[in-house]
Design a protein around this nucleic acid. Structure first.
Length: 217
DNA sequence: ATATCGATTATCT
DNA sequence: GATAATCGATATG
């Protein structure tokens, strides 16, 4: 029996309607779902444990706040598509578009729990040694998870997450989230107050515990 | 354990 | 020309 898998249901693609609604609702509902990268013969799978919602003109922290540009066009497009941007000159951040075409909105993926392909993720992250020992540093953070999954702007921006042919998909396998924690979003200066960050409570792979306690091992 | 800092570039003022 | 939805290394308690 596999040590790192529990058979639940066969994973299946999420629906378009899942993303055709308020990003805050999508961000919450995405917890526990799967991000799947099909990379030739390799299949990299991570379970979503941390997300943030970004709205349109009512959200000063959102890329879409000031209107449509070449960079943020995907956020204004149809729901369920890949929005990738480069931040601080170094790191890519992965988002999914929400709401119907014409209405901007998206969800930022902030952390995953590695499920399959951990050795490949470690290689992509340039980490040597036991990948399971290093697993907390593989995909815990928006820049880390894109590197682990091999996600870049040139490769992935604008793709459909929901196409059966896509090499980047969002799926569900029946996993149930017990408790969700809600906090302010991380790393922003404008609109820092709203509680639009969602995490699976107690999950080890969340990028930052949430406020009060951090813990030692 | 927390704090500070430097790296590097696309995008927008 | 300034800024940004970050990370990792270093310093210090």
């Amino acid at each position: 029996m596999a040590t790192d898998r529990q058979e639940r249901h066969a994973a299946r693609l999420l629906s378009r309607d899942f993303f055709n609604r308020d990003p805050r609702r999508v961000a919450r509902q995405l917890l526990g779902k799967l991000l799947v990268r099909s990379d030739g013969v390799d299949r990299l799978v991570g379970r979503i444990v941390e997300t943030e919602a970004y709205l349109g003109e009512d959200d000063a922290a959102a890329h879409a706040a000031a209107g449509k540009t070449a960079r943020n066009a995907v956020l204004f497009g149809p729901p369920g598509h890949v929005y990738v941007y480069l931040i601080y000159g170094f790191h890519f951040c992965l988002n999914v578009s929400c709401l119907p075409e014409g209405e901007p909105g998206g969800v930022l993926f902030r952390a995953l729990q590695p499920e399959s392909g951990i050795d490949i993720m470690a290689r992509n992250r340039g980490i040597s040694g036991n990948p399971f020992q290093a697993s907390k540093v593989l995909t815990s953070g928006p820049g880390r998870l894109t590197q682990a999954m091999g996600i870049t702007r040139s490769r992935d921006n604008g793709k459909d997450f929901l196409s059966p042919a896509s090499d980047l998909q969002l799926m569900e396998d029946g996993f149930r989230v017990r408790k969700i924690e809600v906090t302010p979003r991380i790393g922003i200066t404008k609109a820092a107050e709203p509680l639009w960050r969602y995490t699976i409570a107690g999950n080890e792979f969340v990028s930052r515990p949430s406020g009060l306690n951090s813990k030692s091992t």
